[in-house]
């Protein structure tokens, strides 16, 4: 028995039908074509599926799709403004903070959540906030540099 869900994804009204057991991640990727949100583990351990629900950072694999009803969902597809990248995205590229790139969408969504909550994080705060996003390629060094640089630019209103 499918459920009808009305939601808002990246500031657009969206409706979908889903099975009760389906996760938000499943619906984003398989029903709505929003494949920027990645699945690395399906158990909330890797952060590749990081999205925001009503402004709160969550793993989409741990949220049921029906929970999206009436909520505001933010995904990687909503971070850039048309063709102009968000400063966080620019800084990831400038600092070579991605190699394979599979963790990058989740990390960028998490970075945005971090900097909204704490515009002036210490390096240690950034490392702990992003500890839920696994990256196997970079050793995190360049990611943290990108985050700190983006934070500074955002504070300066760049």
């Amino acid at each position: 028995m499918k459920t009808h869900v009305t939601t808002d994804i990246n500031d657009e009204a969206v409706e979908f039908l889903c099975e009760p057991q389906h996760t938000l991640l499943h619906v984003l990727r398989n029903e709505l074509g929003l494949t920027g949100t990645k699945e690395g583990c399906g158990s909330g351990d890797c952060g590749a599926c990081s999205v925001t629900v009503n402004g709160r950072l969550v793993c989409a694999c741990l949220v049921l799709a029906v929970e999206a009803d009436g909520a505001k969902i933010g995904t990687i597809e909503g971070v850039a403004n048309r063709d102009s990248l968000h400063i966080i995205q620019e800084k990831y590229l400038e600092h070579a903070a991605l190699q394979c790139g599979i963790c990058t969408p989740g990390l960028i969504v998490s970075t945005q959540a971090l900097l909204e909550e704490n515009p002036n994080p210490t390096e240690q705060e950034a490392r702990y906030f992003l500890a839920g996003n696994l990256c196997r390629c970079t050793g995190y060094d360049k990611i943290i540099r990108a985050v700190m640089d983006a934070a500074q630019c955002l504070r300066q209103g760049a």
């Binding site: 990727r29 494949t35 920027g36 949100t37 971070v79 070579a96 790139g101 990058t104």
Partner: peptide, 22 residues
Amino acid sequence: RTIRPDGFDKVTGRANYGADLS
């Protein structure tokens, strides 16, 4: 230290990985 040519797609979620094709 140039900007990688596949960078835009990878920071916007547009790049297609293994499980992304249906």
